[in-house]
Structure formats: C-alpha cells, structure tokens
Amino acid sequence: MKIDESTVRHIARLARIRISDDEAKALESELGAILSWVEQLGEVDTRDVPPMTRVVEMTLKERPDVVDDGGCPDDIVANAPAREDHFFVVPKVVE
C-alpha cells in the first residue's frame, strides 16, 4: 500500500494531530510499510467467517435502570486544565 503525503495529512486531520512537514515525510514511509505488511491478511479466505464481535462467550448482565453514581461535579472538573465553577472552559466555538 502506497500512502502519499496528502493522505497522511488527511488522516492526521481526522485524528486531530498536527504534524510537521518532517513528520509527514517520515510517516509516509512508516505507515506505508506497516500497511503493506498487514495486507497479507488479504490472502486469508474469510468467506463465511463471521467477524469476531466478542472475546469470551458470555451473556451480558443486566442491572436495574437506576442512578447509582454521580453528584460529584468537583471530582469531575478536578483535573481540568481550564475550568470555571463546574464548567470546562474551551476556546469560543460559536460566533
């Protein structure tokens, strides 16, 4: 799989990671190498094979639909890099 620089930049944008020109260059070949290597999976015949959706067979447990946690806004904002009262502060998103 060949990955070009514009694809690298597109993925980085989707992943919300700013990358420098040097990084984009390096990633072009690194990601290309990794993706070429995983392409060997294409040779496995998976017709009629379902994708794995659970790791260990078990029935999901149910619990009563009641609130059993919460009421701790101080804890929730305790680690915020910017906060006011019980709110997270971010750059302006609406004009």
Binding site: T46, V49, P51, T53
Partner: peptide
C-alpha cells in the same frame, strides 16, 4: 472487518 474475521479463525 477482514482483521476481525481473521481473528475468528
């Protein structure tokens, strides 16, 4: 999807 199928195998 292919990887998850291989995982089943």
């Amino acid at each position: 999807l292919q990887a998850q199928k291989v995982r089943t195998l």
